[in-house]
Design a protein around this nucleic acid. Structure first.
Lengths: 402, 402
DNA sequence: ATCGCTTTGTCCAGTCGTTGAACAAAGACG
DNA sequence: CGTCTTTGTTCAACGACTGGACAAAGCGAT
């Protein structure tokens, strides 16, 4: 419970063997269901005996149920199993924008209920109070057992500890958000960076599940989330994917981080609106997106230029990680095809063709729900132990060691 | 045997439980030895009973032995165990340079015997014959059971299959090198990219073992190797770390890859010598390194500029991965302190301070042996199942999944 | 020296969880 | 209707970890 990270390095016991196999069976039913016990046994390599036993446990927990018989293939017709999508509900929070969003989500990533709370300029303790209120409101409407609470927020987050190390927009530093919410609710709580959450969401709920995935979020800020071998990668200091403040123009515009020419000053929504203002065009981001759709040449030029710059950054990431699926999300992705084309073009031009050839760059499908769903996805993983990495396409990690 | 990748996703059985614990015990003795059974039990969490049983097996295999008694802490003096460093020997090959190097290595990474074979301009089948000859010569001198053969070579390598997908310098395409050598020797064979091998070597033999490690190799080419959570990360297409052909100067010099302004055209040994030639300075890389040491200002200027450019690349990697240890290797690293300082300075300037602050950038200690040792390290992992990731500093990966 | 205490390493019964064979149930096909 | 397949369960067996007990070995105090 509440244990971050399946400790791959600890001892192995019989209980862990069983837990592992139980997760394997649950994951198989989740991904391949409706499916019979015998088929689960074949795909997992376990014996039918063991699968039956494990499924009995899952059914006792209400996580799966029998949903009818399948067609016979020459023998007894199989009893089909599927995951009970609303056996548990999850609470997911998105504190990354000017409005806090919270939702109740089922095991399939469907949003059951959602609320928003404006935050305006409140920060520090006041912002915290809004979070508590939002959580309580969500919990009050819950109709199923709540598995826990997942929170995605901008900033540098120590996920295993559940501590917000630094969130400039909310003026939080070393806030033990996880513990605070856990105390009030007595539920498991997980906190994760919003870009990283989005990556998890796209990995779990956002289409074909690949082992490795790179998600680049471009809104007011720029951040990436990296899923490697089905696991969120946070780096040594939880800051993996924090590419927004890498310098791309040594003599460029001043950035809110205090330095000059960061990627953020070139590709973020603010950067685009700034450039448009310079060109005499004024309006909101939504206005700009409408204008682009209507063929405004000024907007098109600025947006394509920003897309190209982002393409260079994507090329670095593709070169470094050789990931075959890159998903772009965030408000700037709302510019759609012209912007996407620019990103793709420049990424292809700047990366080794051998690497970029097989790489798909696309816009995410989860839109505004990415963070909320990602926080939920983290929760599902940790609390249910569901790990579908193995069901994804082949892995290419090789163990290191002495 | 010869199975790449401990399949984290398959079913768990009692045998795997035992194998896992055996590796855990062996790894603990390897890292912490001399150590008593009781101490192993405490650090692993296994019972003394189980540890004794597993150690008995390891001793039967000759992998570990008792080496005396330790001081009593108030009770019976412990019997100390250590890994028998030469219980097995490994064959490591480096095909990345103009001279093929091969070595016999013990379990501690000590080179027992080494040979070199000039390759000159031979490529294709001829180069392959040289490899076979080198392997046979090494095997003929072996005095211990050989665990297998590890091969590091430039190019794009499908490590699980042991196939060289593309190695321009040797004119190999889709060469099943692993199978070819395996057929001739009946030994387990692993093939891996040379930069990736170097990363493994630095991870396993190159100093304090951290979970994540980034190794950047700068010689005639530029490549990186990425160790994540103790595992070599190869990406979806085995090309992770292939940063040498990311464009940094859209209108820059022509690269051997056919495009312009690749990182390689700016920071490689060839690039440095080219710039020096432009400045009227002629000589070999070794000459340049001597000249730098003697204070030649022309050389210093060019080298520092190249270092700065590499620093920008390192900044991207630090930003993307937030890895706390970056090791620089390859012939260009021979420029030493002035070059290193330039890389550090620019990396710090270009990366988010929050990320670069805790990052150590240093020059590798394994020098010319990196690839050979890395190939051996891969072999040890795969064949002995040694995985020391868990003994390294805390991990920050969080499981993903539905 | 001796007694008591602590620690180490081993032995043994117990338990947990997977396995494999056997079997009944259920359906397809000739 | 009988035979053959496939499914899902039952049962005995086995493999591997656990916990308690015990002998061996050492320290310290009397």
């Amino acid at each position: 419970m509440s244990r971050i990270v399946a400790d791959r390095s600890g001892k192995a016991t019989h209980q862990e063997t069983r837990a592992h196999n139980e997760r394997l069976v649950l994951g198989t039913i989740y991904d391949r269901g409706p499916i019979s016990r015998a088929e689960v046994a074949r795909t997992t390599g376990l014996t039918r005996t063991t699968v039956s036993d494990l499924v009995a446990g899952l059914m006792r927990d209400g996580l799966t149920h029998e949903m009818g018989r399948g067609p016979s293939t020459g023998g007894k017709a199989p009893i089909l199993l599927e995951v009970t999508d609303d056996a548990r509900h999850l609470v997911g929070l998105d504190l990354g924008e000017k409005v806090f969003r919270g939702a109740i989500v089922d095991l399939r990533g469907e949003i059951v209920e959602a609320f928003s709370v404006p935050v305006e300029d409140r920060d520090g303790q006041e912002a915290l109070e809004r979070v508590f209120a939002l959580v309580e409101r969500l919990l009050a409407t819950a109709t199923r057992p709540i598995l826990g609470i997942g929170i995605g927020t901008a900033g540098l987050i120590d996920t295993p500890l559940g501590t917000v190390l630094e969130a400039v927009n909310l003026d939080w530093r070393d806030v033990p958000l996880g513990d605070l919410v856990r105390e009030r609710t007595s539920l498991p709580v997980y906190v994760v960076n919003d870009s990283q959450a989005t990556a998890l969401a796209e990995h779990v709920f956002g289409g074909p599940r690949t082992s490795n995935l790179l998600v680049v979020k471009v809104g007011q800020g720029v951040g990436a989330g990296i899923v490697i071998d089905g696991h969120l990668f946070q780096g040594d200091g939880f800051g993996a994917g924090e590419i927004g403040h890498t310098t791309v123009r040594p003599a460029g515009l001043a950035c809110r981080c205090g330095r000059r020419g960061c990627l953020e000053t070139v590709v973020s929504s603010r950067a685009i609106l700034g450039r448009l203002a310079e060109a005499g065009w004024h309006g909101s981001l939504a206005d700009a997106q409408r204008a682009l759709a209507e063929g405004d040449p000024t907007v098109a030029e600025v947006v394509v230029a920003a897309g190209r710059e982002l393409g260079v950054a994507v090329a670095w990431l593709i070169g470094a990680l050789n990931v075959h699926r890159v998903v772009l999300v965030g408000s700037v992705a709302g510019f759609g095809e012209p912007w996407l084309a620019a990103v793709r073009e420049e990424a292809t031009r700047s990366a080794l063709p051998l690497l970029s050839r097989d790489t798909v760059v696309e816009i995410g499908r989860l839109h505004d729900d990415g963070v909320v769903l990602g926080a939920s996805a983290l929760l599902m993983t940790q609390e249910l132990g569901l790990s579908l990495a193995g069901l994804a396409a082949g892995r290419h990690t090789v163990e290191a060691a002495p």
